[in-house]
């Protein structure tokens, strides 16, 4: 998650609260170190594909 790009749309948190936190100003961060648990890959990609600011990136582990 790139905090410079995030503008607080909170689309990621709204769609996939399991993987994202959001603060009172709307800025989102990944839960923990951002590692996506097995089974939540599709949801993680849904969050990426809904960010209007291209602030979330998938990093292969």
């Amino acid at each position: 998650m790139d905090p410079e790009k995030c503008e607080g749309h909170a689309r990621c948190y709204g769609l996939v609260p399991e993987l994202f936190n959001v603060d009172d100003y709307g800025l989102s961060t990944v839960v923990g170190d951002g590692t996506v648990p097995v089974g939540l890959e599709a949801k993680a990609r849904l969050a990426i594909a809904n960010c209007p600011e291209y602030a979330i990136e998938e990093i292969a582990g």
């Binding site: 607080g8 909170a10 948190y13 709204g14 959001v22 009172d24 100003y25 709307g26």
Partner: peptide, 9 residues
């Protein structure tokens, strides 16, 4: 303004 419209609020 933003905190008044946060997810929590």
């Amino acid at each position: 303004l933003l905190p008044w419209f946060s997810h929590r609020r």
